[in-house]
Amino acid sequence: MVTLGSYLFLSFALFVAGLAVIIARKNIIAMLLGIELMLNAAALNFVAYTRFVNSNIDGHIMALFIIVIAAAEAAVGLAIVIRFFQLRESIHIDDAAQLQN
């Protein structure tokens, strides 16, 4: 009853939610939340295909690396956000439109 399609649908919904957050919101931290959602959607896809199509472990490894990258991305992204806030007193994405000062 629970097939590959249901997992793919969930993953699709997660990805669309992440995309909507990135498009609709102008707060940098909110956009980081959207990126987390999209990374999770990708990892969920890998694991679902591992279970339903081929049962080797490579999909799990890939999802593990996605989790690693998500952690690194969150750390560096938030550091950049905090630095940006120190400089500009704002976390609006449109304030980050200049390359220098």
Partner: peptide, 18 residues
């Protein structure tokens, strides 16, 4: 980390699309 980031930048309000 995200909660800390929200708190340190002091903005829980939704930013308008300027």
């Amino acid at each position: 980390l995200m909660l800390f980031g929200i708190m340190l930048t002091g903005g829980t309000e939704n930013k308008e699309n300027r």
